[in-house]
């Protein structure tokens, strides 16, 4: 028996919107720790890891570990039927081939339940080792989204370089080139508007902008984004989900031929 009640149901709606462009089908894993997902995109270039900790739910019952295969477009269709202020409850019985999403309006005058068929998904689970990163950049998520969008109108790849001067995002295409430098800026009115760079040593890596733009679909989940970079490692683009967990996107770098 599984029963997860999330008062801030809009979080779940935002999570689905954040990942459904990147991943088509995925297993949602439920355990005592929380509600999690790990999935690769169809090209096996990027990986998304989601964790919503059990403590973040108003009610969390998970009698035994359960893995539920879902088509994310179908989940999204169901969750789009929930109001932004609705309380969402996810329910499943052991051994059942369906999951139920229950939506309650804030004043309890409307209750809806949507039952969705589960699917068998044979997915690889990758071990992600802890790594020390050469540079970690924290910046406003909206700023990062804007940079990725702007650069993708010029080129297909972005070179992210971190030096003591700041973080530079560069691209080149048929019509020309673009460079955007963000300097460390801690003296802002609100902490979420700061750009903070922790650099052990300079690093420069190249990534496909298509994936970066897809990661920025998670922007509504968090005001800040953390970008962790090391030579010869996938970049980690992390959006924290307030007091509940995170979405982390891993993207393999491009290398020179």
């Amino acid at each position: 028996m599984l029963e997860l009640r999330l008062v801030q149901g809009s979080l779940l709606k935002k999570v689905l919107e954040a990942i459904r462009e990147l991943v088509t089908d995925a297993n949602f894993d439920c355990s005592a720790t929380g509600f999690s997902l790990q999935a690769m995109d169809s090209s096996h270039v990027a990986l998304v890891a989601l964790l919503l900790r059990s403590e973040g739910f108003e009610h969390y019952r998970c009698d035994r570990n359960l893995s539920m295969g879902m088509n994310l477009n179908n989940v999204s269709k169901m969750l789009r039927c929930a109001g932004n202020n609705d309380i969402i409850t996810v329910k499943a019985d052991d051994g059942s081939d369906t999951v139920t999403f229950m939506f309650e309006s804030p004043n309890q005058d409307k209750i809806a339940d949507f039952e969705m068929k589960l699917m068998d998904i044979d997915s690889e689970h990758l071990g992600i080792p802890d790594a020390e990163y050469q540079a970690i950049v924290r910046m406003p998520s909206s700023e990062f989204a804007r940079i990725c969008k702007d650069l993708s109108s010029i080129g297909d790849t972005v070179i992210i370089s971190v030096t003591k001067e700041g973080v530079k995002f560069s691209t080149a295409g048929d019509i020309g080139t673009a460079n955007i430098v963000c300097r460390q800026n801690k003296t802002v009115d609100k902490p979420e508007e700061a750009t903070i760079i922790e650099m052990q040593e300079p690093v420069s890596l190249t990534f496909a902008l298509r994936y970066m733009n897809s990661f920025t679909k998670a922007t509504p989940l968090s005001e800040t984004v953390t970008i962790s970079l090391s030579s010869d490692l996938p970049v980690v683009v992390e959006y924290k989900i307030a007091e509940m967990g995170y979405i982390r996107f891993y993207l393999a770098p491009k290398i020179e031929e």
């Binding site: 090209s43 270039v45 990027a46 990758l126 071990g127 790849t157 996938p234 891993y250 393999a252």
Partner: peptide
Amino acid sequence: DSIQQGISTFFEEL
């Protein structure tokens, strides 16, 4: 030109 690496180059399957 650059080559796109795969994610499983970096992370092992469990």
